[in-house]
Each structure stands twice: as C-alpha cells, then as structure tokens.
Simulated scan of single mutants.
Amino acid sequence: MEIKFLETNELKKKPEDESNLGFGTIFSDYMFLMRYTEGQGWHDAEIKKYEDFKVSPAATVFHYGQEVFEGLKAYRQVNGDIALFRAKDNFRRLNNSAKRLAMPQIDEEFAHRALRELVKIEQDWVPHEKGTSLYIRPNYMGMDPFIGVSAAKEYVFYIMTGPVGAYYAHGLAPVRILIEKEYVRAAKGGMGFAKTAGNYAASLIAGVEAHEKGCDQVLWLDAEERKYVEEVGSMNMMFVIDGKLVTPDLDGSILPGITRASVIAIARDMGITVEERRISIDEVIETAKSGAMSEAFGTGTAAVVSPVGEFVYGDETVTVSGGKMGKLALEFYDILTGIQYGEIKDRFGWTEKI
C-alpha cells in the first residue's frame, strides 16, 4: 500500500525551551492515518497535517471501548542521529492487544515503515537535550456508527507525535506508592495484558485517592486474593531482594512491558539472577522492613526507571533504600538511556537509526 504525504504550509512554532517541555501537551505538525473497512482491508494510508478528524457520536470506541494503543520514543543521539527504540516490539504488542478486543490485525512491517517515514518528516521536532525525546503514540479504534454490542467493521489507525521531557516533574526522585487494597485493575482472563483505554480508566479513581493521601502512584494487587503484586501505575514493578531482581510473572493480568523486558535482559547480561514469580505484598513489606529488599522501582517507556522511596499500606509507611534511588535502578537507567541516546554501544540490537 502506498503512503501518501499531504504536505501542509501551516507549520507550528517549535518549543524554544527544551528544559520545560512537560509531557503529552505539545504535538508536532503531522500524523499518520489509515482506515480499515471489512471486506476491503486497510486503505487510504497517508501522512497529513495533525488535526481533528470526524468521529460519529455513535462510534464503537465511545460506547464499547474498542481501542488499543502504544507508547514509544525517538531519541536524538549524541552524534546527531535519530533513533527509535524497539519499535517493532511495540507493533507486535499492539496486535496482541487488538486480538483480545476482536480487532483486525495490522501489518506490523507496514506500520513500522509508516512510523519511520513520519519520524523522518518530523525529525526537526526531536528535541536535543538529554532526557528529552519525541514521544510516539500509535492509536487504533473502532469507528462504526452503530449502537449494538459487536465488533466494529470500520477502524482507524493513526500515529501522533510530540516532544516531551521527563514524565515526572521531579525526575528520578523516589516516589511514594500507595498499595491499593480496595480497587483492582485487572483479573486473569480479562484485558490486563492489553494496552487498552479501559485498563487505564479503571485506575483513575485509585490514582486520585492516592494523590489525596500524598502518594505519587498506586501499586495494584491481584483481583482474586488482594495478596499478590501486579503493576504500579502505568509501569511494571521490580524489587531487588537478597541481591536478586524479582518481578511479577506475566500471568495474563499484567502488561508485558518493553522496558521491563529490556531491564531483565540487562540484568541477566550483568550476571544478576532474575526471578519472574508471584510476589506477595506481605513479602514486600517484610523484606523492606528487614532490609532484605534493597531497592524497588517501576519500569516503563515514559519514565524509564522510577525508584520507590516509600510504600504506604493502610496506616503503615515503609521506607525502601533509605528513601533514595538504589544503585541498580540507577545502573539500569544509565544503561538504557545510554543505549537510547547513543552514548554506549547497543549490544542488544534495540535501536534503529532513521
């Protein structure tokens, strides 16, 4: 399929202060968009001006939640090159999510090619300062103007981009985490492993209540017993216990994070023992108190590595690593960002130049 480029003369002014980009509020000039119609397949692929598009008030996405998305970044490396990080893994995960929501598969190679073309056109939007990047949001949703519970027959897939700084305003400062005992994010057999809007909507009320209690994020427990650790906010959770890197196993209710997989690969390459297993909240609290847990941190595309300084569990507050960022979390952050920005050699083959 051909990708048409519909050039516009209405270009935006780019941010002058790259140290104050924030996250998710600035969008670049162009977007990629293509449509799907049952019986016809994917069609009308184009890179066009970033702008609103028409959606019926009856569209499937609004009423039945048929929507999946991804998040990845393009980095300006120290030599001036622009590089994507594990982009093909994002499109593979997008299709896994789409399958769960009864949405047609996307040609991953074509989507990857479209992304490369879009980033090449938008290369001047990739910021220059360390810690900044061009955030990329592929989104895919049902468009049928039909009120009735069924899979859509029409879809739109688009990719939007925008320059970003640090996800958290406080950067790498350790966060305070509320362990959620009432609400649940996902259950086995549900959509926990899919990157879909409904999972994030389910987390909002707990996030609001966490902030009211002076916490930055929520640590979710399993839906069945409220006993085992799952995710933290929009990230996967990791602990360093007795020198081992321990993280919840992927049992269907946890998002298979790409940064998670990267950190695990780096840890094993460093000779660190990695355990992917069930972790009870009792073990978390007990090892944090005893000192057997030396570090805890979240991993995700937006923040990369986010160290945890305190857990709040009911009326109890437990400090980890003296409330400071741990040695291993900092090493993982430095290695990952070093690869992304081209400061160290990418021995894993994760980056690709545009």
Rank of each mutant, 00 (worst) to 15 (best):
His63Gln: 04
Pro163Ala: 05
Glu122Met: 10
Thr37Trp: 00
Gln340Thr: 10
Glu231Lys: 02
Val184Ala: 12
Arg35Trp: 07
Asn9Met: 11
Glu180Thr: 09
Val218Ala: 04
Arg116Phe: 14
Pro15Lys: 10
Glu122Ala: 06
Glu231Gly: 01
Gly323Thr: 00
Tyr140Ala: 12
Thr25Leu: 11
Arg185Asn: 04
Trp350Lys: 00
Pro256Glu: 03
Asp144Phe: 05
Met191Ser: 14
Leu84Gly: 00
Ile339Gln: 12
Ser253Gly: 15
Ala173Trp: 04
Glu18Asn: 03
Gly24Val: 01
Lys153Thr: 12
Glu51Thr: 14
Asp269Thr: 10
Glu316Ile: 01
Leu72Cys: 11
Arg277Met: 11
Val164Tyr: 05
Gly207Trp: 11
Lys324Gln: 13
Phe23Gln: 05
Ala166Glu: 14
Gln340Asp: 10
Ala114Ser: 13
Ile136Pro: 05
Glu38Pro: 12
Thr337Lys: 12
Glu352Cys: 11
Lys153Val: 08
Trp350Leu: 01
Gly243Ser: 00
Gly349Pro: 02
Trp350Ala: 00
Pro248Ile: 09
Arg278Ala: 13
Val164Asp: 07
Gly326Arg: 07
Gly342Leu: 14
Glu18Lys: 02
Lys4Pro: 04
Val184Asp: 06
Arg100Ala: 07
Lys188Ser: 08
Ser321Tyr: 08
Val263Cys: 10
Pro104Gln: 13
Glu331Asn: 15
Ile335Asn: 04
Asp222Met: 00
Cys215Met: 15
Thr8Ser: 12
Pro127His: 02
Thr273Trp: 03
Thr351Trp: 15
Glu122Cys: 09
Ile279Leu: 04
Gly162Val: 00
Lys227Leu: 01
Glu18Leu: 06
Ala74Trp: 07
Tyr228Asp: 03
Arg35Val: 09
Leu245His: 02
Val208Arg: 13
Tyr140Phe: 15
Leu115Lys: 13
Gly323Tyr: 06
Phe193Tyr: 08
Arg260Ala: 00
Arg93Ala: 02
Ala152Asp: 04
Tyr228Thr: 03
Ile106Leu: 14
Trp125Phe: 10
Leu336Glu: 03
Pro163Trp: 01
Phe332Ser: 00
Ala296Arg: 14
Asp17Gly: 07
Ile335Lys: 15
Ile264Pro: 09
Trp220Gln: 06
Glu2Ala: 13
Ala187Arg: 14
Ala267Ile: 03
Ala98His: 04
Thr273Arg: 09
Asp107Tyr: 02
Lys120Trp: 04
Val208Asn: 10
Gly291Tyr: 01
Glu109His: 01
Ser97Glu: 09
Ile106Pro: 01
Met293Pro: 03
Thr132Ile: 09
Ser294Gln: 02
Gly148Ile: 08
Leu115Ile: 09
Asn139Glu: 12
Glu2Gly: 08
Ala292Phe: 05
Gly323Trp: 03
Val312Lys: 15
Lys345His: 12
Leu101Trp: 07
Met191Leu: 15
Val175Pro: 05
Leu11Pro: 08
Tyr341Phe: 07
Gly233Tyr: 00
Arg86Gln: 11
Ala302Phe: 10
Val308Leu: 00
Thr317Trp: 05
Gly233Gln: 00
Asn9His: 13
Ser133Cys: 07
Thr37Ala: 11
Ile121Asp: 05
Val156Thr: 02
Ile335Glu: 07
Phe332Ile: 12
Glu70Arg: 09
Asp89Tyr: 11
Met293Cys: 12
Glu283Tyr: 02
Trp220Thr: 09
